[in-house]
């Protein structure tokens, strides 16, 4: 079967919907969407979306796997929960959006240079080291995310805020040196490892 035909066969099939149901947090709600569009209209960042949530749900049902997972729309969600409140079918849209983003990340199909994705990675890397977020380091790595020059520029721009925070004891410059960890760091890492194992097992069972 040619790829073209295969693509056609997959259209409007349950396969991707089932995949989302199995792998995406709250994904089982996608089938309940009735395409009213109130989520799309209620989203305060609506203009920034390439695909509205309601459209993403329709795309899932239409089997547009690649387009959905490569979309940057779900990365735009700021978790304001307006859509959930308004949804006449009570779909946990915020959670589904995050779930889809997470799933795309796991599959390695995050849109190139997606800033939210980058930030999430920084956040994760930062967190996993000490079991807590080192805000100073996280802030700086965020500034330098897009290169050294831009990092310097941003740092200078934010300098006054940084000093102010230090002065009011909202930030400790000593954290730059390693930084302190949670009480039971190894325990924390064990928890994470276990969770990762469970996730692997689940993926092995359902496939991804």
């Amino acid at each position: 079967m040619s790829d073209m035909n295969k693509a056609m066969v997959e259209k409007y099939r349950n396969s991707f919907l089932s995949e989302v149901e199995a792998n995406v947090e709250e994904g089982e709600w996608v089938k309940m969407c009735m395409q009213c569009g109130v989520c799309a209209g209620s989203c305060p960042l609506g203009d920034a979306w390439e695909h509205t949530p309601q459209k993403i749900f329709m795309m899932i049902r239409a089997g547009k796997r690649d387009e959905v997972l490569a979309s940057d729309s779900m990365w735009m969600c700021t978790s304001c929960y307006n859509c959930i409140v308004r949804c006449p079918r009570e779909l946990p849209i915020t959670h589904i959006m995050h779930g889809l983003a997470h799933y795309a990340k796991r599959l390695g199909i995050v849109p190139q240079g997606q800033p939210t994705a980058k930030f999430a990675q920084l956040f994760w890397d930062n967190l996993i080291k000490k079991g807590r977020v080192n805000e100073l380091k996280l802030g700086l790595s965020l500034y330098f995310m897009n290169g050294f020059g831009e990092g310097i520029k941003t740092s200078l721009k934010m300098k006054d805020i940084g000093l102010g925070m230090v002065k009011t004891k909202r930030m400790n410059p000593m954290e730059m040196l390693g930084g302190h960890a949670v009480k039971d760091l190894s325990g924390f890492q064990k928890v994470i490892k276990k969770a990762q194992e469970l996730e692997e097992a689940r993926l092995a069972k359902h496939g991804a």
Binding site: L17, S18, E21, K31, M34, R61
Partner: peptide, 14 residues
């Protein structure tokens, strides 16, 4: 009944 169909994963498309 519409909801029922959706629960059964029937795909609806305009």
């Amino acid at each position: 009944f519409y909801r029922s169909g959706q629960q059964q994963m029937v795909i609806f498309s305009k």
